[in-house]
Design a protein around this nucleic acid. Sequence first.
DNA 1: CTGTTAGCGCCTTCAA
DNA 2: TTGAAGGCGCTAACAG
Lengths: 336, 336
Amino acid sequence: MAEVAKYVGVSAMTVSRAFRQDASVSEETRKRIMEAVDALGYVLDLSAGSLSSRRSGFIAALVPSINNSNFSDTARGITDALENTGLQLLLGYTDYSAEKEEKLIEAMLRRRPEGVILTGGSHTDRARRMLDKAGIPVVETWEIPEEPINHVVGFSNSEAMSLLVRTLAGQGYRRFGYIGGTTARDTRGSQRRSGFLKTVEELGLGPGRAISFGVPPITMEQGGQAVVSLLERWPDTEVVLCVSDLSAFGAIMECKRRGMRVPGDIAIAGFGDYEISSICHPSITTINVDCYGIGRQAAARLLDALQGSSEATGDEITLTSYKVVLRESTDRGGAR
Amino acid sequence: MAEVAKYVGVSAMTVSRAFRQDASVSEETRKRIMEAVDALGYVLDLSAGSLSSRRSGFIAALVPSINNSNFSDTARGITDALENTGLQLLLGYTDYSAEKEEKLIEAMLRRRPEGVILTGGSHTDRARRMLDKAGIPVVETWEIPEEPINHVVGFSNSEAMSLLVRTLAGQGYRRFGYIGGTTARDTRGSQRRSGFLKTVEELGLGPGRAISFGVPPITMEQGGQAVVSLLERWPDTEVVLCVSDLSAFGAIMECKRRGMRVPGDIAIAGFGDYEISSICHPSITTINVDCYGIGRQAAARLLDALQGSSEATGDEITLTSYKVVLRESTDRGGAR
DNA sequence: CTGTTAGCGCCTTCAA
DNA sequence: TTGAAGGCGCTAACAG
């Protein structure tokens, strides 16, 4: 920067100002500075700037997995919301592990992010303490934690699954099965499961038939294996709800391979409304979640918190929408 | 850090050393320091450290889209390879746009990354100049650029597609169709397309029947639309190769909706071996690409370049593997 | 609108 | 093995 300053014949401070749109530098001077910047190929050093301005320009976000399009949609929502804010996203993958999340939070905090976006509400004590000490806004997403740290942008996975059960029960289904991962690591999965069990019970259709398998992320293949186990144990199951569309797709394909008709012999539904579910054959009944919107709104809440330091409206819960999408895979008349 | 130092009764310098495993600090002292760090909840500030050490600890990586599991696999490969190196990944999405890539490169360089991983070999002149001036190792991935900047980790998309054409021709297919996006933005897509056209010609089966549509990323739905256009124009097409498994899946589903048997009436193949292709019904013939390995190796080349400053073996091209995976969707006897 | 001074929090370097 | 001095490149704060 000193080089640019000397080249133009101004002070380094003026060059620094020229890089910020709101700073008061005459148009003439700024133009000459920018020409020099171009000529010299100078690139501003933000790490030095953030040290003195005490603003890192980073937002940290942790998602369970980036290979899951639901979460990558959320990541994209965050990225889009951050565009033109001068904030840079630091993205991390927790692999559905609270321990890995803790390590990542520490690694991220060393970069002094101005805010943090987490997935879910299940964190280690140490992670909570670190975040607390950091004194920066935190947004938890994708569910409604029992003890929110700060802001929340999400929905009740339990209620969403409950809605799906009730909707299908309203169509006449009675013998419900459920496929999901083991509960310890995937809190959203276990919430969906408990929503399923509770609702089946409430409707007098219990006890619920639930199969657990594997650790997240649940693959399509595991969905196929799980539906086989489920049907071995409870052969007269009418409809199977799955923790996600991916396992639902795997389950449907496995059933078809075994000569069963879906939805003729068995109905299957998913969760998440992945692209595949509207395209595949039969198309899959599911819960549509506003994944992208979760990202955008999480980032927006963070930006609010960073700006409105005076107003300080306090922590809030932003509920995001979800809806049942009925498709061929649970078609009551369907005998395809 | 000063606070920790005072608490323990040592200098800040000793605390700084205690954080680095290789630094010479007595075990006793380090232990006391780490206890103080815990007690005070101190978190090291890397941005300050990187300013004085002149090592940011960042690696920048740009991918076209994170919502595409091929690229998210590559991103995961990079992340995994960087684990325990103390390096942090800065990830950006270019949306298949060289202009957006240029902006992202500038934004990334302001963080002074120690290396850069790019997707493809198509960059703006300004981007090339900036990277050149930065004087850091660059790895281009996923293809073999005509004018590599530095290191390359990838494969020939053209030859891979050619191999697929030859394999299917060997099975007796003669009338080949191709579905892909418009060529300007997706260089890998256009390479696959040219590999297709060239090979069909070489085999005396030309001219190739190719349909272009939309801008990347190509969705499943667009694959369905494209195959309809293709078959309207060339109704006797025997086999359709698609720029990716996603469009292939969409094409297959659309054909089945229209009452065609796949592969009985028409055979369809994809590219990329996405999870869906082994699971769906019919399973999809495709080219398996080592997406994860591309990420791991790209990061490994970068780490080599960062360490072996003395040896300086120079730029190299690391070829990654691909292979044809024959599945049901092109089964010659298949009449399903 | 522009310049000067000081310092962000850590690490490099040198000395003990 | 430890400490002291100085500076990384930039920007806040204040002065003009």
